[in-house]
């Protein structure tokens, strides 16, 4: 099988089809939500949430095996989301407290996994995902979780835009601030949970943050932002998955496909950045 086949016919293989399905749903959800993360400047909070979810992933994995990962992650995500939303609304949060909480949570997760006999090998899987070996039921559950996140954001789309642009005006118009923020944070947490299983907890940030940041480089039109973000996420997923397949299945080098996917996101961002800088240079 040559490189070209990795980008095309390889997707006829069942495990590649499952991986693609997972990434398509993730790309749509993460693309839309990523634009709001960028507009609201929530990158650091998102980072905090991914780390806070980690002990949940770890505990779920240790006590429930592969099937327990999602439940553990959902519980941790729910707790972390509520705590972070309330903290930010009562103005007690700061970058320092978020940083302390997130490193603490991450350490707890690493200790849980490492201290469990026979489960230590699972650490790599939790950090980098297992995109090419997801089962049918995992793919389905991941898709459902990401779809719920998508529905939450689509249903509150206008108030999210209003709030991102002008939180005070949005509150004066009668939209409750806490509920608007809570819905977006829950959606972010759900995408983290879904994506952690597929691309791994460490690489989730690429999927959530890069598409929104990339779209800001490409366009200044509100509608186009969402189209570009979702489109670039889909493109990066396809490229990354094909490269991962080529390296690990065809090449025989055991590389998690989550890493090639994350790298593809960064690659597309770099191209967008270079094009923008070059165009600015020409216009100047």
């Amino acid at each position: 099988m040559n490189l070209l086949d990795s980008f095309t016919t390889a997707f006829a293989l069942p495990f590649m089809g499952r991986a693609l399905l997972v990434l398509i749903v993730l790309s749509i959800a993460a693309g839309l939500i990523g634009v709001f993360i960028n507009l609201r400047g929530l990158e650091f909070l998102t980072d905090g949430l991914t780390h806070a979810v980690f002990p949940g992933l770890a505990a779920g994995f240790v006590f429930g095996g592969q099937g327990g990962v999602l439940i553990g992650a959902l519980v941790a995500a729910a707790a972390a989301t509520i705590v972070l939303t309330l903290m930010s609304n009562n103005k007690v949060t700061s970058d320092a407290t978020t940083a302390i909480v997130l490193t603490a949570m991450f350490s707890i997760g690493v200790i849980i996994v490492s201290a469990s006999p026979g489960r230590a090998g699972g650490l790599e899987q939790l950090l980098f995902g297992h995109l090419l070996t997801v089962t049918d039921s995992e793919a389905l559950i991941t898709a459902i979780v990401a779809a719920i996140a998508l529905v939450l954001v689509v249903l509150t789309f206008r108030r999210q835009v209003f709030h991102a642009f002008d939180p005070e005006g949005s509150a004066a118009a009668g939209y409750r601030r806490v509920s608007t923020e809570l819905v977006l944070n829950v959606a972010i947490a759900l995408v983290i949970v879904a994506a952690s299983n597929a691309v791994g907890n460490l690489l989730v940030l690429a999927v959530l943050i890069v598409p929104g940041a990339l779209s800001r480089l490409v366009t200044t039109k509100l509608g186009a932002l969402f189209v570009v973000a979702v489109g670039s996420a889909l493109l990066a997923s396809w490229i990354g998955l094909s490269l991962g397949f080529n390296i690990s299945v065809v090449g025989g080098v055991d590389v998690p496909a989550g890493a090639t996917v994350a790298l593809s996101f960064v690659l597309l961002y770099s191209i967008a950045l270079i094009v923008r800088v070059a165009r600015k240079g020409l216009n100047a």
Partner: peptide, 29 residues
């Protein structure tokens, strides 16, 4: 209708004037 004293907005925020004014219709929609 409410016009606050100072609005702290991101000058780079990607919305047009028309889109901002449409926000006034959101509650009705």
């Amino acid at each position: 209708g409410y016009l606050p004293q100072t609005e702290h907005i991101d000058p780079e925020f990607p919305v047009t004037l028309k889109q901002v004014v449409m926000m006034g219709r959101y509650r009705k929609l």
